[in-house]
């Protein structure tokens, strides 16, 4: 799943776009919606990263004989 660097650029892109949305919404005066946009972006990236982390831990467990 994580054998190339594309996910890196994906996360960086999501971060930049979310920051952009945050700035625009703040300029428009919608402070709460800007906060929500940042939160949603955070959660999206969090899901990707947690999936990767769980894959990594499974791999470590299977390689280092934690579960046979």
């Amino acid at each position: 799943m994580f054998t190339d660097a594309s996910v890196l650029f994906q996360i960086a892109g999501i971060g930049i776009i979310v920051a952009l949305i945050h700035t625009i919404l703040k300029q428009m005066g919608k402070e709460e919606i800007a906060q929500f946009a940042t939160l949603i972006g955070f959660i999206i990236v969090l899901v990707v990263v947690i999936n990767g982390l769980s894959d990594l831990f499974q791999q470590i467990k299977s390689v280092f004989l934690f579960q046979g």
Partner: peptide, 21 residues
């Protein structure tokens, strides 16, 4: 500079990719 929480995720995912390889 823009979004420090995403920057932390960048670190995390880089470690994961390197370890996977």
């Amino acid at each position: 500079e823009i979004n420090s929480s995403m920057a932390f995720f960048i670190i995390l995912i880089t470690g994961i990719i390197i370890f996977f390889s």
